[in-house]
Amino acid sequence: MIQMFHVSKTFGKDLEALVDIDLHIHKGEMVFLAGPNGAGKSTLLRLIFCDELPTSGQILVNGRNIVRMKPRMVPQLRRTLGIVFQDFKLLRDRTIEENLALVARVVGLTTSQTQHKVAQLLTLVGLSHKAQMAPYKLSSGEQQRVAMARALMNDPLILLADEPTGNLDAELATDVLRLLFEVNAQGTTVLVATHNLKLAEEAGCRTVFLKQGRIVGEWNGGK
């Protein structure tokens, strides 16, 4: 589903964020990308949704080479992805429901389809009763779940989650993990970036270790 061949990304002249990355993630897999802050995890995710282009190397997503893709094809690629941003990126001046509906409009759902989808996802993340609230009135755990729900609005083939347990305590982190498993169980390929090694261990998923922009090891999840 995601294939990276000798991918490097250099910012400016000599800030090597990623060096010679070879990574293959299969359809339906759930994979953790673990490493300390500044290891290059977010950069790797951003390459996948074409927010940045690699300095060298090739990337295939769902069989398409996204490095050589024409700019006007990028929106189409993004519509097949779900992204949970590290900083959530929720709009303060809209309700939770409106935040989710924004995505629906972009991907072209009708009003009734949107209502249905919003209700379904808010139920999934357990926030139906807060649909009309502004995001900043929610706890960070709840905001995290809203961000997750929004990422699922377009039934993505791939879910990219950047630090989805960022500053949550262990119990809430487990909740998020359960949610990710549920999404993965429905066939969505999931890639999670985290600096929390314990989380990866708890999940028992295939984990790729990243350090100073290089892959320094891999764990098969104890299977």
Binding site: R72, P75, R78, R79, F85, K89, L91, L102, V103, V106
Partner: peptide, 16 residues
């Protein structure tokens, strides 16, 4: 700006 950023990242075209 933030709304535009989000729309861009969830696959809105420039025209949209």
């Amino acid at each position: 700006a933030q709304e535009i950023e989000i729309m861009r990242l969830v696959g809105a075209t420039k025209a949209y």
